[in-house]
């Protein structure tokens, strides 16, 4: 019976302290009865292997003992999906932007990648995960907070958005913004090598002319799409692809502008020549340092545009069943 005693001792270790003796006595009685019954059947004492097989069938000491404990959890099955959702959003929100910015800096401005403190990423993630887990564990144990989560009203649920629909307000806002920007841009800058700006004479690199027309082309394209969206407020695959093209064009032109050391000279009557040269240097460096951030913004815009195209290609849930319009059509036609 040495095996049986060892087994019971192992089970006892994991049992709730106050019930240990009671539970072990009962389990022991059951197992001894099984062994005795088998022995009576075989007409001899069981060997170790046979006792072992009885104990194995009973289950591992830990699993057997755990069944006597009440079910405990840090975050219960009701809150767990919400916990997982919040944790995923938080962790992705922490990993993705930082990694993208770091990669862009690595390509365009490797000197300043150190400012992003990527070595702290793991500890930051652990910190967010810990805080989220603690918050949900508190929520799990606080009935009042849980009840507040359960009080809801169907009328307060957000309206179902049609991903293809373009709100007219957005198109109007976009048109107004772009028109104001174009008027300011064309009245302030000229497609020439030298132009006046706020009383200063600016000499720019020859590439400026191309950049100027590139900006105009991209802006005009965006306005044309916005106007179309105003009158036909539903995205189509073609229009979404055109929007991506125009945005990529604008992004490339803007990045080229930031990178191309565009200002050659600044002439201001009251500014000494040496200071003017320094100013030109500062402006070009500032533009260059803006480049990684501009690339990040452009990437976000491009990702949004690509996501729109993908979403348009995806069949909508409603497409699976008959549409309300289809049904009413059938009723009218007597089908």
């Amino acid at each position: 019976m040495e095996l049986l005693d060892r087994y019971l001792h192992a089970v006892e270790f994991w049992l709730p302290k106050r019930q240990r003796g009671d539970i072990v006595a009962e389990l022991s009685e059951d197992l001894r009865s099984q062994i005795e019954e088998k022995e009576a059947e075989l007409g001899r004492k069981l060997d170790e292997t046979e006792v072992e097989s009885i104990l194995k069938r009973c289950g591992s000491p830990l699993m057997v003992a755990l069944r006597y404990r009440p079910q405990q959890y840090l975050i219960g099955p009701t809150l767990f999906p919400l916990y997982r959702f919040v944790l995923t959003i938080l962790l992705l929100g922490c990993i993705v932007p930082r990694t993208v910015i770091w990669l862009v800096f690595l390509f365009f401005d490797p000197v300043h990648t150190g400012y992003l403190h990527m070595e702290n990423m793991v500890s930051t993630l652990m910190f967010f995960a810990f805080l989220t887990t603690v918050a949900f564990a508190i929520l799990e144990r606080n009935a009042a907070l849980r009840d507040r989560l359960n009080t809801w009203n169907p009328r307060k649920l957000p309206a179902v958005r049609d991903p293809k629909r373009i709100p007219r307000g957005n198109s109007l806002f976009e048109i107004a913004g772009l028109v104001v920007m174009t008027v300011w841009f064309t009245s302030t800058f000229k497609p020439s090598a030298v132009f006046d700006l706020f009383g200063a004479q600016i000499t720019v690199a020859p590439t400026w002319k191309t950049i100027f027309w590139g900006v105009m082309l991209s802006t005009t394209g965006t306005i044309a799409i916005a106007v179309t969206n105003l009158f036909r407020p539903y995205w189509t695959p073609l229009r979404a692809a055109l929007r991506l093209t125009v945005d990529v064009l604008g992004a490339l032109v803007f990045c080229w502008f930031l990178k191309s050391q565009i200002v050659i000279a600044i002439t201001v009557p009251s500014l000494p020549a040496t200071k003017a040269i320094k100013l030109v240097g500062v402006i070009n460096v500032l533009l260059l340092q803006t480049l990684p951030w501009a690339v990040v913004v452009m990437l976000i815009i491009a990702v949004c545009d690509i996501y729109r195209i993908v979403r348009l290609r995806r069949p909508t849930q409603r497409a699976a069943g008959p549409q309300v319009d289809d049904l009413s059509h059938s009723i009218v036609n007597g089908r």
Binding site: L27, E29, Q34
Partner: peptide, 24 residues
């Protein structure tokens, strides 16, 4: 009944139940 005979009675009726399920 006590545990072991209870298990046997259930098994005879076709409802096998192991000790780690029955006692808890």
């Amino acid at each position: 009944r006590y545990g072991y005979t209870l298990r046997k009675a259930l098994a005879e009726q076709g409802l096998e139940i192991d000790e780690s399920t029955l006692y808890p």
